[in-house]
Design a protein around this nucleic acid. Sequence first.
DNA 1: GATGAATGAGTATTCATTCAT
DNA 2: CATGAATGAATACTCATTCAT
Lengths: 212, 212, 212, 212
Amino acid sequence: MQLSSHSTAPQTDVNHRILEAAQRLFARQGFEKTTTRQLAEAAEIAEGTLFRHFENKKAILVAVVTQGWSEMLTDLLTHLSEMGSYRSIAKLMRERMLTLPKQADLMRVCFMEAQFHPELRDRIQAEIISKMTSVVEAFIQTGIERGTYRDLNPQVVARVFLGMFMIAGFSQDTLMDEDPSPGFQREMAETLADIFLNGILTQPAIQKQPEI
Amino acid sequence: MQLSSHSTAPQTDVNHRILEAAQRLFARQGFEKTTTRQLAEAAEIAEGTLFRHFENKKAILVAVVTQGWSEMLTDLLTHLSEMGSYRSIAKLMRERMLTLPKQADLMRVCFMEAQFHPELRDRIQAEIISKMTSVVEAFIQTGIERGTYRDLNPQVVARVFLGMFMIAGFSQDTLMDEDPSPGFQREMAETLADIFLNGILTQPAIQKQPEI
Amino acid sequence: MQLSSHSTAPQTDVNHRILEAAQRLFARQGFEKTTTRQLAEAAEIAEGTLFRHFENKKAILVAVVTQGWSEMLTDLLTHLSEMGSYRSIAKLMRERMLTLPKQADLMRVCFMEAQFHPELRDRIQAEIISKMTSVVEAFIQTGIERGTYRDLNPQVVARVFLGMFMIAGFSQDTLMDEDPSPGFQREMAETLADIFLNGILTQPAIQKQPEI
Amino acid sequence: MQLSSHSTAPQTDVNHRILEAAQRLFARQGFEKTTTRQLAEAAEIAEGTLFRHFENKKAILVAVVTQGWSEMLTDLLTHLSEMGSYRSIAKLMRERMLTLPKQADLMRVCFMEAQFHPELRDRIQAEIISKMTSVVEAFIQTGIERGTYRDLNPQVVARVFLGMFMIAGFSQDTLMDEDPSPGFQREMAETLADIFLNGILTQPAIQKQPEI
DNA sequence: GATGAATGAGTATTCATTCAT
DNA sequence: CATGAATGAATACTCATTCAT
């Protein structure tokens, strides 16, 4: 590990620095308005070096986005598989939503640019969204079969579930009038989860946050 | 009408053609990637003419977005005020969501670009979002007071309500794996409305679409 | 006169207003940086009207400049012919230099733009400068013959004489460090005239301003 | 020299080529009418390269002008300090004026553009003109104290002195009717110097060019 | 492999000029 | 004749990409 780092680490390191810089800058200013010069400066490398690591600017975008989604996918799967009760899905949502701001940057990049870069969108949909939805779909399906969830189309519910995270993500900067205080942010996440859970349960848990 | 169009029509007409072209192009390719040359071609005018009608490229964006949102706001207020029962809010959502694709272009433009143009975001939030949320908020508040809706924070619920439209809007091109068939689209809208309604009602209407 | 003014006066009036505006604007901002829109606004006419009175923008420049020089030429000739003593040439210079600021705008336009518009320069030189120099030349020549002026080449002295006005004209905005107070301005004009006179007289009038 | 040029020369070289091209083109066509494309072509570089070396087109102007004036200032100071007799100032003028055509381009650029670019004018006045005038002023002052020069305001005389160079510079293309033969040019310089000297001396040296 | 100077196609914007009204 | 909306060529400047060192 330490020995091999001589040759591989710098490689990986530079790559990593580029992606980190890119995620930050793309989120802040959008893909088009971020220049390769800025990217290079932020990653503390020369402008030309960018093109030794990525074929072109768009390749950096693709890398940033797919990498980020992969993390989200893994994260979601891990937590979903660890979940005991089907009624605790609200808890999962609440937690994920509150850790979301870290990834909100990425989501924004993703939704923004996916619109305009077909190959990026296709890739995200093929590699990530479809996997996510099918995992969530299976989860919902089981809940329905057990009689915990109402008899809705699991495909659709899965998408609504994922959509909820979008709301949470975007609500910060677009849906809010200026002041997204942490308290309000938290309440938003909780209510969102609560409405969703009550919306799909056969025997609603009326009160907010009924389970830990 | 036809006679008086002599003097006023050209002005208005060109303005209108520019905005229409802009909405289409911005939605398709984003603001940055849309060139003024394309804009002019699409509006069938000379490039220079753009700048007789709008000071800037960005002024076109602002015009497109605020005009579009205004229409949405009016539309929402009209339908909300016409609504008889508080349980029919799902119906409103379904209908609005299905007529949404027409305005989906606009929404996309809006959410995309608002991120990067503070003055645009401020304007949207001040003129539109805050009005929308406060109207919806009042509506929810009344529902809660009448005991129809659960005792949730109306501010938050209003935002969730508006967020639902976002999901519907974006689900088409981002959340879907390729095939947003009209049938699926419709089911998405219905389920979204259904989950939301059941999520907030005190006495859930369990079955989907219980009222026309 | 009054009757005919119906048709001719407006013509002349508009023409005059254009030239006045042009002189002011060209002097202030230069020819290139003055737009036809500004010209039209300043003359209080429509932009298109400019081109009914002048074939193009440069024609306005040519008109401004030749008209202005003509006035200067006339002015110079009048005063030169009225001059009694050859020793009072300094008086002429002083007076002309002090009334110069009015025409400084024009001079600036002239010297600036003549550089870059050969046809303008040729015209000025043919119609104005050569006339001016030959008139002054004759005057100097006579002074020399009478023994009042030193035996210098009258051609050259004439040009030096005219050049002195340039110094006076430009000294205001270019040769001065910020503060061309009227007092200093006046002293400049007087000293300039004084040095010139003493420089060409056979029997110098040593003291400054020896004659009224 | 040849070896070390590897790393430093290109930088300096390109910069130098740009300034040289700029001086030539600005003088010939003026600042506004010179396009960056022309500038690049004349300097034999790509248009974009201009902007790696200068922030703006105007920055090129400023560089051209200040560099040129600095050379003139140095030149003047050198010769002034080397001067033995106060009566030989005419000699200095004659010499400087005849080597002037080389710098006439620059002077023209300078006087033209200083009119319209306040920051340029301020810079020239602060860094160059005021230094020049104060040096010349001191020289004149001494001449007056020694009784060689007449008792005139040294500040003003200094400006007249510098203005004389302007006449010489501009006389070539503006004050002359077409034919500035070298002979005439030389006579102009000599007469100018002669008139100035006789104009300020207490005991005039009547004949032209009385000292070497 | 890393660098960063050079590139030149591409951008938003301006403006003299035209021409239908 | 006057108007001013429309024009489109031309402009300064940007930036992803290349390549000699």
